[in-house]
Design a protein around this nucleic acid. Structure first.
Length: 1028
RNA sequence: GGGCGGUUAGCUCAGCGGUAGAGCACUACGUUGACAUCGUAGUGGCCACUGGUUCGAUCCCAGUACCGCCCA
């Protein structure tokens, strides 16, 4: 059955994909040749509930090109696929789905049932993204599909695997090495998901904001001389003040202020440093007093120069508070509402007030009148204090803000400014005092998933002490053991790692790897059990946990209370029993309460182990030996910190080796105008729709062609259409071959046919040249250069010229070798294009000959450089240039295409004559020439110059002399300009002296060639002038 | 504020020491033994600006302007 006019992608893709999968063509090690190296790639695991977007399509196309290329070369290739459990995202998707199905919410359901429900969701969603990756032609070893939560407790049948064990083992190891610790720290809190998130999951966005200015009255009505000076030291303002002015964008956090800070060099406030001032909000009879302290943080030139310090709700303030031992009072609950727990406000405020005065004493600011006993509270005692006034408790943070501002303003403690207003009726001007509120853009943190405003929150969390494991990760890149492409990625990598912050890895979610730490009552002393303190037991398995418990508590019964209240109740009993010395009387019935940390690990903690985890670690698997470290990681530059840097740190910390030799970072895919694709903008290009419309190969080739290093990738459907056309072009070249019997009895021939005809020798050489270009480009991860080389070869050389040359050759004595050559060249084209356009090429390969193997396993060519025939290349260059010039000349003087003209060779060197004669049929056909003679140029002819030759095309009466003159003049002018440049250079004595010899030689020969050509055109011009 | 990039044809981008290339778009012509998802020919550029290095700069260096992205 003859070939169709175009490739039917929609029909063929599914069929070919099935063929590959059925034959397990992508299995690890498939097509590997003995002695060849391993080539391994880890897929960046997409979210298990995700669906394919353009970024995935791009990323996976590049990986697939590399993988298919290496597999065809016979390397032992593994492309490891899998998905990520994506904590927040998956929990979110499941809860949304549950709401839709009117199922009970997760709290009603309880943790265990909810997790079962998420596993169901996971199993339902997983096929979507995997199927979409397969549609893309991704040649990963699908039988090895991994999951970052495989083997977790409660996982259903079929979800077994090592990943959970690996994650837990790493946590325990790092904990035992002191690289993971728990602490009360200020973290980014997502009030929507009610969990901590890491710095990286926060997006800072500029939004319109307001800055209020308030007066904090000095304690006891004290006053001071407030003096402002200009740059020259002249006094510009001097007044007596009984307050200090503060600016804030978050008035509701004033309730948690622990101090007011000024810069140590700020003379304006020097008189009141170490004194107390009053927070101007809350019940008047219980106003809290806080100290005025110095710190480097306040900027004297910004606002009033004084800042309030709210350690529990601002990262900068937290640092100041830590430096000066200022207490951090938490005001918000997990949903970012004003706290409603704890003792009433007046009690809490009293305690906080004592803290302030004790601070003054402790820091040596104490004045005789208010000397106090030392008074300190533990972190958790401070955290238990709720300083939200009773009437604000339980309010939303924004509602509380409104009320606070209103109250302060009503009391006259807002800083005011004069505002001029004009009475519309009378035209009279009024001046009135209004609260001073600046409208200005402020940076606000948002959760990257929830999109709600993130709240800095003082909570107990687990952290990786990244500073301790960062050095090997830095060293590996510095030394070049791991190479990051493009190099700018390395700079970014260094910059981040050199300034790395502790990594908060605990999340208050249910879906994830639960932290393997149990808490029990702390034995503070040898004999007693302390109140409110915990002992930690970090264990990878039950056996180890029990061992640790026994070591610590001795032989006792362990219970796991269901909730914290119960825990503390049992703890209290236990404590009492032990402290009362009656423990051993209970005859082993004494119960030690233990509870497991309910939090789960950050998803990136587990995906940070992707390279070793997917290869079976901690078991010493053969895959680990063979494929680790992996060859290359292909990923977006947006997850350099999230994932790449963490994999580097973790693999080096856990197995002491780099996870990959090369990291290839690519940009983000945007729309044709460079805009981020987003549903709200409506500019999302769905890769599956593109595949439906243009075929997968077109999308893949476009992706490869776009993959220049660095920057944004703007995707244009017109360009994809262009590459679809490119596929069609190759398809039709093969169809042409079919019509000319090229494929009859064809089998794959790896060695090039021995050809005599110049055109055949030339195209064989071009094939070898292209192969070298593609190899070189892919070795350097220049997918764009490789795609470009293939495009130019197939379209520009094979289709534009070689197919045309073949037409006359098929009628001549070289027909047989031409058929063999064309078959070989088109075969090579399919092979070289296969990593880029796997479907179309596999289909072509299958329909054009009898093949020993599928194209996916066909040997990547190894073509000797001797195939590049310089003489043939030179001769074909002469031929194609001549044809181009004749066509151009004809077109410019409007010779009808249908008219076959004659050609007169007016001068020919021997070489040129031979070259011409050998290819005369080709030239005549393509330049539409009838008869060829040698002799003088006839009157009324147009002139064409070539290397070593000059030709005339007699067209008397057909052409406009003036037009021809202007054409020649133009060509001459262009040459003259080039000659001028070359001459100028060569005449410069410094050029000859300083430039390399070959450059001088090249310029010299260039000049001669240009001059020769110019002379011929000049001659022709003269002839025309003679004609009139 | 800190870091990393970018500024080349109408658009999207290559090139990165020897005075410019591609694809698309545009113009004209055109169904010649595969291909109109095509062919042939053409139009189009002080390579952001200012200095410097060099025999020679779009390319290297410094600065300026503007535009991105990341981190505060």
């Amino acid at each position: 059955m003859p070939m169709e006019k175009t490739f039917n992608a929609a029909e063929a893709e599914a069929r070919i994909s099935k063929l590959w999968l059925d034959q397990k063509a992508f299995a690890a090690g498939a097509n590997a040749k003995p002695g060849h190296p391993a080539f391994s790639v880890m897929i960046p695991p997409p979210n298990v509930t995700g669906s394919l977007h353009m970024g995935h399509a791009f990323n996976n196309t590049l990986q697939d090109i590399l993988v298919r290329w290496h597999r065809m070369m016979g390397d032992d290739t593994l492309w490891q696929p899998g998905t990520d459990h994506a904590g927040i995202a998956t929990q979110m998707v499941t809860e949304r789905e549950m709401a839709l199905q009117q199922e009970p919410d997760r709290r009603t359901m309880g943790r265990e049932k909810f997790l079962t429900r998420v596993w169901q969701q996971k199993q339902k969603s997983r096929g979507t993204i995997i199927g979409q990756l397969q549609r893309l032609g991704a040649s990963a070893d699908w039988d090895r599909e991994a999951f970052t939560m495989s083997g977790a407790p409660g996982s259903p049948e079929g979800e077994d695997g090592n990943f959970h064990d690996a994650v837990i083992k790493v946590f325990v190891d790092l904990y035992n090495k002191g690289l993971i610790y728990r602490g009360k720290r200020l973290v980014n809190w997502d009030p929507h998901f009610e969990t901590a998130i890491s710095d990286l999951e926060v997006e800072n966005t500029e939004v319109p904001g307001r800055m209020w200015h308030f007066k904090y009255p000095l304690a006891g009505g004290q006053t001071y001389e407030y003096v402002e000076k200009d740059a020259e030291g002249r006094v510009t303002l001097r007044e007596t003040r009984d307050y200090i002015s503060i600016a804030t964008t978050r008035p509701e956090t004033m309730l948690g202020d622990g101090a007011v800070a000024v810069h140590p060099s700020d003379e304006r406030y020097a008189p009141i440093v170490g004194k107390l001032c009053e927070i101007p909000v809350g019940p008047a009879e219980h106003r809290r007093l806080i100290p005025i302290i110095t710190d480097e943080y306040p900027d004297p030139s910004f606002g009033s120069g004084a800042v309030k310090i709210t350690g529990a709700h601002d990262f900068n303030d937290y640092a100041v508070a830590k430096r000066s031992d200022i207490p951090c009072y938490r005001l918000l609950d997990t949903r970012a509402q004003m706290r409603a727990d704890g003792v009433p406000y007046d009690e809490a405020a009293k305690i906080a007030g004592r803290m302030s005065r004790a601070w003054l004493v402790a820091k040596g600011y104490a004045t005789p009148g208010i000397a106090e006993q030392p008074f300190t509270l533990s972190e958790s005692e401070i955290d238990a204090l709720n300083l939200v006034p009773d009437d604000l408790r339980g309010l939303d943070r924004y509602e509380a803000r409104k009320r606070v501002v209103e109250a302060i303003t009503a009391e006259g403690l807002a800083v005011t400014t004069l505002k001029k207003s004009v009475d519309k009726e009378t035209g009279a001007e009024h001046l009135e005092l209004v609260p001073y509120v600046e409208s200005k853009p402020i940076m606000q943190p948002f959760g990257d998933r929830s999109k709600v405003v993130i709240e800095p929150m003082l909570t107990d969390q687990w952290f990786v002490d990244t500073a301790k494991i960062v050095e090997p990760a830095l060293e590996a890149v510095r030394s070049g053991r791991t190479k990051i492409i493009p190099p700018s990625g390395e700079k970014t990598y260094y910059h981040w790692l050199e300034n790395i912050e502790p990594w908060c890895i605990s999340r208050q979610l249910w879906w994830g790897h639960q932290i393997p730490v149990w808490y029990g009552p702390s034995k503070h002393t040898e004999n007693g059990i302390a109140k409110n303190e915990l002992a930690f037991f970090c264990a990878a398995d039950q056996e180890s946990l029990f061992d640790q418990l026994e070591d610590y508590y001795g032989s006792v019964l362990i219970v796991e209370p269901q909730n914290p209240d119960e825990f503390w109740q049992v703890t209290e009993n236990f404590r009492f029993a032990v402290n009362a010395g009656i423990a051993d009387k209970l005859d082993g019935k004494l119960l030690v309460p233990i509870y497991r940390d309910p939090d789960v690990l950050d998803t990136w903690f587990s995906s940070g182990l992707w390279p070793i985890g997917t290869l079976g670690w901690p078991e010493p698997t053969p895959e680990l030996t063979k494929y680790f470290p992996t060859s290359v990681l292909v990923t977006g530059q947006d997850i350099l910190f999230f994932w790449v840097a963490r994999m580097m740190m973790m693999q080096l910390a856990v197995v002491g080796d780099i996870p990959f030799h090369t990291v290839y970072l690519h940009g983000l895919v945007r729309d044709a105008k460079g805009k981020k694709m987003s549903k709200s903008l409506g500019n999302v290009i769905d890769p599956l729709e593109i595949i439906d419309e243009y075929g997968c190969d077109a999308l893949r080739f476009a992706n490869a062609a776009m993959a220049s290093l660095g920057g944004v990738l703007k995707l244009d459907t017109q360009r994809i259409a262009g590459y679809r056309n490119f596929g069609t072009k190759l398809w039709n070249a093969c169809r042409f071959a079919e019509m000319n019997g090229v494929w009859e009895g064809h089998t794959t021939q790896s060695t090039a046919p021995a050809a005599k005809a110049t055109a055949n020798r030339w195209i064989i050489g071009e094939t070898a040249r292209t192969l070298a270009e593609v190899n070189e480009a892919l070795e350097a991860f220049r997918f764009d250069t490789a795609a470009d080389a293939l495009y130019k070869f197939v379209w520009g050389k094979v289709c534009d010229w070689y197919v045309e040359f073949a037409k006359p050759l098929f009628d001549g004595p070289d027909a047989a070798e031409t058929r063999a050559t064309m078959a070989w060249v088109l075969d090579r084209s399919m092979i070289l294009l296969h990593p880029f356009m796997p479907f179309l090429t596999e289909e072509l390969s299958g329909t054009t000959g009898k093949r020993a193997k599928l194209l996916v396993h066909t040997d990547w060519p190894d073509l000797p450089a001797t195939l590049i025939d310089q003489a043939a290349a030179q001769e074909m260059s002469f031929v194609t240039t001549l044809i181009d010039d004749i066509r151009s000349a004809r077109a410019q003087v409007h010779v009808p295409v249908g008219l076959k003209a004659d050609l007169v060779a007016t001068s020919l060197t021997d070489d040129a004559r031979q070259a011409f004669q050998r290819n005369e049929t080709l030239i005549k056909r393509l330049a539409r020439i009838d008869n060829v003679t040698e002799g003088a140029a006839p009157k009324g002819s147009i002139a064409v110059a070539a290397e070593g030759a000059a030709f005339a095309i007699p067209l008397q009466g057909l052409i406009d002399i003036a037009e021809e003159k202007s054409r020649l003049q133009k060509a001459h002018d262009k040459l003259a300009k080039e000659i001028g440049g070359l001459k100028g250079r060569l005449d410069n004595p410094n050029f000859a002296k300083s430039a390399p010899e070959d450059v001088v030689m090249e310029a010299q020969s260039n000049l001669e060639a240009r001059q020769e050509e110019a002379a011929k055109i000049k001659e022709a011009l003269t002839r025309l002038s003679d004609l009139g």
